[in-house]
Amino acid sequence: MIRPTKPEDAAALIAVASTIGFEPNELEALGKMLADYFGGNTDSDSFWLTDEDDKDGPVGVAYCEPERMTDQTWNLQLIAIHPNRQGQGRGRKLMRYVEETLKARGGRMLLVETLANLERTRTFYAKCGYEEEARIRDFYTAGADKIVFRKVLNAD
């Protein structure tokens, strides 16, 4: 079941991020982002979604925020599914839920980014209908390129 994230989901979602390889500093930043979101310390229309399993609780997360100074362009900042639940279509369902949420809000375009060396992630975005829009060489560190994918949601 996909639903809006609740404050009590935070620890489980940080644990999901840990299982997919987030570094300690990234986990700390994620915890701060969630705390700011639930504390009302954000000035955007960002939203968090949780994919919850009846038996195991939260197993997936998505976080999306609007791109400032644009006409309804959004960024998917995070999408993650626990490794034990990957390959079951959960990521694709979560992505569709994000897209439908954005369409209902008048969202025009969704951008996602990833590291160039994460082939499985890039394949996932392509299967979800995203096209590679840009590559920024050496963005994260020397030799670690950033790939930006794009999908138009509402062409109007």
Rank of each mutant, 00 (worst) to 15 (best):
D53M: 09
E23G: 01
V98D: 01
A11Y: 14
A126E: 15
A12C: 08
E26T: 03
A126Q: 15
G89A: 04
D9H: 12
R92N: 09
E8F: 12
E28M: 12
V59Q: 02
L115P: 00
A126S: 10
L76Q: 02
D156F: 11
G40F: 05
R96D: 13
A35P: 01
D9R: 01
R3I: 04
T50G: 00
M95I: 06
E65R: 14
E113T: 07
E133M: 14
L115F: 14
M33S: 11
K6A: 12
T114R: 10
L94Y: 08
D45E: 15
P7G: 04
R120M: 06
D36E: 13
L118G: 00
T101P: 04
L30A: 09
L153I: 12
P7W: 12
P66T: 03
Q72S: 11
D71S: 08
I147G: 07
K127M: 11
S18Y: 09
F149W: 10
S18C: 10
Q72R: 11
T123H: 11
L153H: 08
A15H: 13
F124T: 09
A144R: 13
H82A: 05
L13R: 07
L110A: 10
E113W: 00
M33P: 08
N41E: 08
A116Q: 08
G39Y: 05
Y140M: 07
I136V: 14
E28S: 14
K103R: 14
L78G: 02
T141L: 15
D71G: 03
M69P: 00
Y125I: 09
N75M: 04
R68G: 11
V61Y: 01
L78T: 06
L49D: 00
E132M: 13
G89D: 07
D43I: 09
N84H: 04
A62W: 04
D156Y: 11
P7K: 12
D156L: 13
T19V: 05
G106P: 00
N25W: 11
L153F: 04
T121H: 04
A144V: 12
N25R: 12
L94P: 09
